[in-house]
Computed example of a mutant assay.
Amino acid sequence: MAKPGRPGAGGKGKKGATKGSGGQGRKKLEGRGPTPKAEDRVYHKAHKRRELAERSAAKRPQQRSSAPRRRPNDDNEYVTGRNSVLEALRTRIPAAALYVAQRVEMDDRVKEMLALARKRELAVLEVTRPELDRMAGFDGVHQGVALKVPPYEYAHPQDLLEQTLEQGSTPLFVALDGITDPRNLGAIIRSTAAFGGQGVIIPQRRSAGVNSAAWKTSAGAAARVPVAMASNLTSTLKELKKQGVFVLGLDGGGDVQMPAVELSDRPLVLVIGSEGDGLSRLVAETCDQIVSIPISDAAESLNAGIAASVALYQVATLRAAQG
């Protein structure tokens, strides 16, 4: 006679998953993942509402920020050289401290620097010449003085135009396409100031920024001539064209020589390309006219800073003759 089994231990039954156990249901749901959001389902009303909102946002003009633009990861810069430092202090650009070499020669410029620094309550620090050498960089000349300034605050191109028109002046800007040497940038800023230009426009990429080398070469003009940064140079030039600014590209292969330009009395932006590559294709296609500077066959091309100076001088001369 068989012994009775323990209650619940054994008994007949089916092997494996049974209906109601959840086994079969889990197998059916494997791999489906979480339920998509409503706006991610193409047939849902929420998805159509999101598409409509994105299309509307794309049609709206890009709102420019009133906050100053800065290049990412910029550190403090040092303006060096007596003329550059004095000009920066005279024009009251933001500064953190004035550094003076030990036993510096006290000429009139240094005396005025110290007076201006005291008036602005700037820290005046006496440092060794090796320390000033470090601030000035490998090829910098400090002449015993350096001014610590925060990262340069770039204007917006549209602000340049509005401010110039508010002042009752005929706009004359210089836009740079592929100028990567900050000394060229500084020289162009200086020439822009010398020949009555109201601003310089640089692209956010593939361009030198206003650093200590540009400050030095500008001989203080960077404190008077604003530099604007364009997120996209081609788009910025197109926008200026819509507002009546004539875009004049400077290139060795131009159809018209610079002295023959008869449009100098109207709002102008001169576009300067790099010495090696010239104007980029998209920028050249955006220009209303491409002009060249006549030079001797002994030279293949002009330095970008020199080319800008010649073009600005020609425009200034024509404007003076016409007005």
Results as ranks from 00 to 15, higher is better:
M135N: 00
L312Y: 02
V261M: 08
D181K: 07
L122R: 04
I295Y: 09
N83Y: 07
P72D: 07
Q143Y: 05
G31R: 15
Y313N: 10
Q24W: 07
F138Q: 14
V247Q: 01
A123L: 15
S296T: 12
L86T: 02
A117F: 05
G253N: 14
V210Q: 00
S212C: 11
D251Y: 03
V210M: 12
L302T: 06
Q243T: 13
K119I: 10
E51S: 09
Q163P: 07
E300Q: 15
K111P: 04
E275S: 05
Q62K: 12
G81V: 01
I202Y: 00
R90F: 09
T18G: 15
A155V: 03
A2M: 14
D107H: 06
R50P: 03
D177C: 06
L172A: 06
S212W: 03
P203M: 06
G16F: 09
S235Q: 09
D181A: 04
I202H: 00
I202K: 00
Y99F: 14
L172Y: 01
Q289W: 10
Q24E: 14
T164K: 04
L147V: 07
L279S: 03
S66N: 01
A46W: 04
E126W: 07
A88H: 00
E51R: 13
S169V: 13
M229G: 00
K241H: 08
Q158E: 13
P7K: 11
D75Y: 13
R55H: 15
E54W: 12
S84E: 05
G197E: 03
A223L: 03
A321H: 10
A260I: 02
E239P: 01
G253Y: 12
L114M: 11
A320C: 08
L122C: 03
H47R: 06
A194K: 03
A9I: 10
S296D: 14
L89M: 08
L161D: 02
L248D: 00
E166C: 10
G254P: 05
L176A: 05
V200Q: 00
L172E: 01
R55W: 13
K242Q: 14
N83V: 12
V149Q: 02
V141S: 13
S309K: 05
Y313F: 15
D107C: 11
L240F: 14
S280K: 06
V245K: 01
V247I: 15
N83Q: 12
A194T: 10
S235K: 08
P36A: 05
A304Y: 01
Y43S: 14
N303G: 08
A57L: 14
A208L: 10
A187W: 00
S191F: 07
L132C: 05
L312V: 06
V100W: 01
V104P: 02
P61L: 07
G186I: 00
A101V: 08
L122N: 03
G253K: 12
G22D: 12
N73E: 08
T192C: 14
Y99I: 06
Q63K: 13
I306G: 01
R71W: 03
